[in-house]
């Protein structure tokens, strides 16, 4: 019945509700700014923030900072995802190694790596190398368990079946492991992107001479709220787009592999 839309009973209706809520919040925000319900200096109106976002995109310095940060993220990602996945594959396949080294990874995973940032700075200074090392270590311990799960998601019976039909080692890697693990590999890529960015920006905010994180910190400290919000919004747009794209890819690959 028509009342479906009140209870989120239908996906189209849910989307309309979400859009309506966001529009309502944005309108409230804009009005609060225009009519000075809140101090404009603390919460600038949306229109000024959108305006500043466009100006930042056209600003040479901002683009340079963004480029630095992006490069650092990409380098981290390119190193850590393959190395982390291979580590995960090895641990997943090898019972003995898993038993011996597994607990170490567990401990490393549960410790918040952020607290080690001062140590990294002491060891490696501040600069590209330190940021990349920090973000790599942070992301590595997220990727490894994903790799282990990926390998363990393939049941041994399927391996036996493939062997019975004459599969060689290469066949098993190319035709079984990779297709079977694809959803989790995409998941690892997604997590790799998220945590690389997280680590790099965090390190930049803490102590850096360049990069988006440093700019955001500087604007926050000098109460330049408009630029702060604008920069944060731009970063959010990028991370959300990447995350959603990869989640969608993961979803598609999973749909083909529904267990039965």
């Amino acid at each position: 019945m028509k009342l479906n839309f009140l209870t989120f009973g239908d996906r189209g209706a849910a989307r309309l509700w979400r859009a309506a809520i966001i529009i309502a919040l944005f309108s409230l925000w804009e009005m609060a700014g225009r009519y000075h319900f809140l101090d404009n200096d603390i919460l600038p109106p949306l229109s000024r923030i959108f305006d500043m976002m466009l100006r930042l995109i056209n600003d040479r310095h901002f683009r340079y900072d963004a480029w630095i940060t992006l490069n650092e993220c990409l380098i981290t990602f390119a190193i850590v995802v393959p190395v982390g996945l291979v580590t995960g594959f090895i641990l997943g396949e090898n019972q003995r190694l898993h038993r011996h080294l597994g607990p170490i990874f567990q401990l490393a995973m549960t410790t918040p790596k952020s607290i080690f940032l001062p140590v990294f700075i002491l060891l490696f200074g501040i600069g590209i190398v330190e940021k990349i090392i920090f973000a790599s270590v942070l992301t590595y311990f997220i990727i490894v368990p994903t790799g282990i799960a990926a390998v363990q998601s393939l049941s041994p019976s399927l391996l036996m079946m493939a062997r019975s039909f004459g599969a060689t080692k290469t066949d098993i890697y190319l035709r079984l492991y990779i297709p079977a693990c694809l959803p989790l590999i995409i998941s690892a890529i997604r997590l790799g992107l998220i945590f690389s960015m997280h680590g790099i920006i965090f390190a930049e905010m803490y102590a850096s001479s360049e990069g988006i994180g440093r700019s955001i910190l500087a604007w926050g400290e000098s109460f330049d709220m408009v630029r702060l919000f604008a920069a944060v919004a731009l970063v959010m747009i990028i991370t959300i787009s990447l995350n959603e794209t990869l989640t969608w890819l993961e979803h598609i690959s999973r749909r083909q592999r529904l267990e039965y």
Binding site: S157, L158, M160, M161, S164, L176, P179, Q256, R257, E259
Partner: peptide, 14 residues
């Protein structure tokens, strides 16, 4: 020379 049919079909899900 030999084809095997297993207890659980064991088809590749993807």
């Amino acid at each position: 020379k030999i084809g095997i049919v297993f207890q659980d079909a064991l088809l590749l899900p993807w």
